[in-house]
């Protein structure tokens, strides 16, 4: 009985995510980012993202789990252009998660903000609640023409119409790494063992991915960089992605 009440007490407090095994985190160094969009293409190939076509793109219905946002600063002779890759921030206090009536999105034990396509009923509330606009809705059932369906990644589901989707931090790769770690009788996944498609394809190595619960991981060291910041910090969503500010000369 006492354990029951202890459990009840523990469950009435927030902050359980600190106790998770892994806390997958990414850092993106904006000083290194050239805006080449290799990550966008890699993500599209890895995660079976549909090509919506010209007409739907014009109606801004494209599906890009990671996108490069461009911002312009200053007036004509002195124009500066900045890039910021925007993907799901995997917030610890994600506004989207509480919104879902059917638990289609929740926080898993790796500190990931997951989206379960099978449960989704398509209320699209999560997309409205997301301040980063990184959730994408399947307006139609998209198909792949022959022989393009041969290139689909067998580790990732193909989504049907009426389902929300977003960046998963390549959860299929995380699963494989964790399975391998388990098979090798290792306790934890080694740093650098999991590399999401976007990180893998970045030519300038602007992105670093790892487990921030591991004090020796490269990402943990990168996070301590004084240039680091999180997007829309004032909303207290505590994102898992830390951006490193562009160095000013």
């Amino acid at each position: 009985m006492s354990t029951f009440f202890e459990k009840l007490k523990a469950y009435s407090k927030p902050g359980y995510y600190e106790k998770f095994d892994y806390h997958w985190t990414m850092t993106i160094d904006l000083d290194r980012c050239t805006g080449c969009e290799a990550c966008v293409v890699a993500c599209q190939a890895e995660n079976n993202l549909p090509i919506v076509g010209e007409k739907q793109f014009a109606r801004s219905r494209e599906i890009k789990w990671i996108r490069i946002e461009r911002y312009w600063e200053g007036d004509y002779p002195d124009v500066k252009m900045g890039f910021i890759p925007m993907l799901c921030q995997h917030c610890d206090d994600a506004p989207c998660e509480t919104a879902c009536p059917v638990f289609a999105t929740y926080h898993n034990q790796d500190g990931l903000n997951t989206q379960i396509y099978n449960r989704c009923i398509g209320t699209r509330t999560c997309a409205v609640y997301c301040p980063y606009d990184v959730r994408y809705f399947n307006w139609f059932t998209y198909t792949w023409d022959e022989p393009l369906e041969q290139q689909l990644n067998p580790d990732v589901t193909v989504r049907e119409k009426g389902v929300m989707e977003k960046c998963t931090f390549c959860i299929q790769r995380i699963r494989i790494a964790k399975d391998n770690a388990k098979d090798d009788d290792r306790r934890r996944v080694r740093d650098g063992e999991v590399v999401p498609a976007c990180v893998q394809s970045c030519p300038t190595e602007a992105m670093v991915f790892g487990d921030s619960n591991d004090p020796d991981a490269r990402v943990t060291k990168m996070m301590k960089n004084p240039r680091g910041y999180t997007v829309l910090k004032e909303l207290n969503t505590t994102p898992s992605i830390v951006y490193l500010k562009k160095a000013q000369s």
Binding site: Q56, R59, S60, R61, E62, I63, G122, A127, D133, Y136, F137, N138, W139, F140, T141, K161, G162
Partner: peptide, 11 residues
């Protein structure tokens, strides 16, 4: 067809 028949988009 899907909800895409309506005018909503990702924004």
């Amino acid at each position: 067809v899907g909800v895409g028949a309506a005018g909503m988009n990702r924004n």
